[in-house]
Design a binder for these strands. Structure first.
Lengths: 188, 188
DNA sequence: ACCCAAAACTTGAACTCTCAACCAACCCGC
DNA sequence: GCGGGTTGGTTGAGAGTTCAAGTTTTGGGT
């Protein structure tokens, strides 16, 4: 028989569901208002801004933001219309499309990043007490390990140096080529 | 100046984002495949199944599943087309619409609940180690408190006794009328 | 009685995402 | 040097969500 959720498990599940829904909605609204794009699109621009040369193939981009090829294709098409990303075929393997952040696109990320990070901090990190962030981190690392077979292991993901990144003046000194956390603050 | 996320904070933020995306996608796929509806719609049916008389007004429903009025209206319209929910005007205040779960709708929840709960358990709870669920719960309680002004305080939300609930034979013995956790297993 | 704001939904259009089908370029083995 | 699978992306249709703008009903004031 099914093992139902006990009372504590239900409270966690619902708190998680609602928190996540409300948080992601708040983020979408904030970014839509301040930058004219949804969070998923912001993540694409942000990923490109952190990539070496500010460009990635569609497949790399899909891996980076954990989205389907189809989603990326639609999204990048829209971002291209807005003039924030340019696409071109890769010489050498002409199946491959390279998406490159334009100057206008970079300006959008740079302008949007502070408000975005502040929103994340205010809604997610600030309410957490001493040590809770630590706990959350290890918990989600475990959950992600289950959900994403290739998470945790593959080196060189989000690894490009922070040189190309947004808000570089405020970087957190990640100079080594570790297999995670390339970053600055414009990521999510 | 903006206070950017440090390395640990970024790792948490990304693990949380990706876990949540992958988890919700997995849930949507499982429910779509097994029951022919997305998770948001399942939550509506589930909420109704737990409500006294298996009916709620649109506003109550919106509060219960944390969705906008517009979303609920579209969703319930679709569920009504499918024959799983019936709508009618409330005598006494004819602005108000009452949504009631039909027998067919109840059958859908009953059939879908076990697979759904098992998926949640497998993807979310199983990977968590000793005590991590506790930690997560208190962390999200804090976050939800920030995001939802009226969370935590108002009694009588999701409070209907479990009598009307799904999978009643497998209930977790919640006989009292506490202000949370009405339940069985068909909630999320 | 009457007017006006608020409450409770509903509707339509725009947008994003998913799913399935598709196309083009590459690679491999014979 | 050519079929046949694989890889990398795109496309179109369908479904769900959001946002802004309705509609109807109610509750007050005066």
């Amino acid at each position: 028989m099914t093992r139902w959720l006990d009372e504590d498990e239900q409270e966690l599940w619902r708190a998680y569901l609602w928190s996540s829904r409300l948080l992601f909605e708040a983020l979408d609204r904030q970014l839509q208002r301040d930058a004219g794009l949804p969070h998923a699109y912001y993540m694409i621009l942000s990923a490109l801004s952190e990539a070496p040369g500010r460009e990635l193939t569609m497949t790399e981009l899909a891996g980076t933001v954990r989205g389907s090829a189809s989603r990326l294709s639609h999204a990048v098409a829209r971002l291209e219309e807005s003039g924030w990303v340019a696409r071109e075929r890769l010489a050498g393997d002409r199946r491959t499309t390279v998406a490159r952040l334009t100057a206008e696109g970079l300006a959008v990320v740079v302008a949007a990043a502070p408000g975005h990070v502040e929103t994340v901090r205010r809604l997610l990190f600030d309410p957490l007490g001493e040590g809770q962030a630590e706990e959350l981190r290890s918990a989600f690392r475990a959950v992600l390990g289950r959900l994403d077979p290739e998470a945790g292991s593959p080196a060189a993901r989000w690894s490009g140096r922070a040189g190309a990144a947004v808000g570089s003046g405020d970087l957190d000194g990640d100079q080594d080529g570790q297999d995670r956390a390339g970053g600055h603050g414009g990521e999510g």
